[in-house]
Amino acid sequence: MTHLPEKLLTGYHNFMHGRFEVESDRYRRLAQEGQAPDTLVIACCDSRSAPETIFDAGPGELFVLRNVANLVPPYEPDGEFHATSAALEFAVQALKVKNIVVMGHGRCGGIKAALDPAMKPLSPGDFIGRWMSLLAPATEAVAGNSMMTTTERQTALERISIRYSIANLRTFPCVKILEDKGRLTIYGAWFDISTGELWVMNKETGDFERPEAG
């Protein structure tokens, strides 16, 4: 009997005799010196949209924060437990990242659940429902648009959620101060799982555009 699923053990074996073997010096250096990534990526938990894969990042290059629907809650120093806020605080204050990228993606399960009026809580705690209520005003506006198809409504809310998270990022004093000083830059991006296309948010207009190749 193994203590991990066989697929994971096989993957680990491949890692040790592949990437780790090739980059062992880099891993040792990271272990000794610590991490110093320039960029924090706030992404969804979805197994199909891993930032390290999408951006072809090596060990130590990205600090990744993943949660349902890549949401950032507003700044609330209320003594409760805030995993997303804690990771954000560590990235900005301790690691001193220079960039924050909020990356949403197509066919997001959290966004789909938020738009589905028939969706029932998955447990008595309704943790996902509570979490997705961060988008309630936008969800109600998009869901009520009968001129859009179901797919169009979902894509629209996926992208709006990125703007919401960016707005909430700026409620954190440490983020706002550093951004105003030009020491921190915030970006928005949306990844299409089916095509592999990455759309980047225009900082001036808020529109999502395909970046030029290369």
Rank of each mutant, 00 (worst) to 15 (best):
M1A: 02
L8Q: 01
T10M: 10
G11I: 00
F15M: 05
F15R: 06
F15C: 13
F20G: 01
F20K: 03
S24W: 15
D25N: 12
L30G: 09
L30D: 12
G34H: 11
Q35N: 09
P37F: 02
L40M: 12
I42N: 05
I42P: 02
C44S: 02
R48W: 10
E52G: 08
P59A: 10
L62S: 00
V64K: 00
R66I: 08
Y75N: 09
D78A: 05
H82F: 07
S85Y: 07
E89N: 14
L95G: 04
K98F: 02
I100G: 04
I100D: 02
M103C: 15
M103E: 06
C108H: 07
K112R: 11
P121G: 10
S123F: 13
S123M: 08
G125Y: 14
I128N: 08
M132Y: 14
S133K: 10
T139D: 02
V142Q: 01
G144T: 05
G144L: 10
G144I: 14
S146T: 11
S146C: 06
M148C: 10
T149W: 13
Q154D: 04
A156P: 13
S165H: 06
L178V: 01
E179L: 13
T185Y: 11
T185H: 14
G188P: 06
W190Q: 07
D192L: 03
I193H: 02
I193N: 00
S194L: 05
T195A: 00
G196D: 02
G196E: 00
G196T: 07
V200Q: 11
V200D: 03
M201I: 14
N202F: 08
N202E: 01
K203Y: 12
T205E: 09
E209M: 01
E212M: 13
A213E: 15
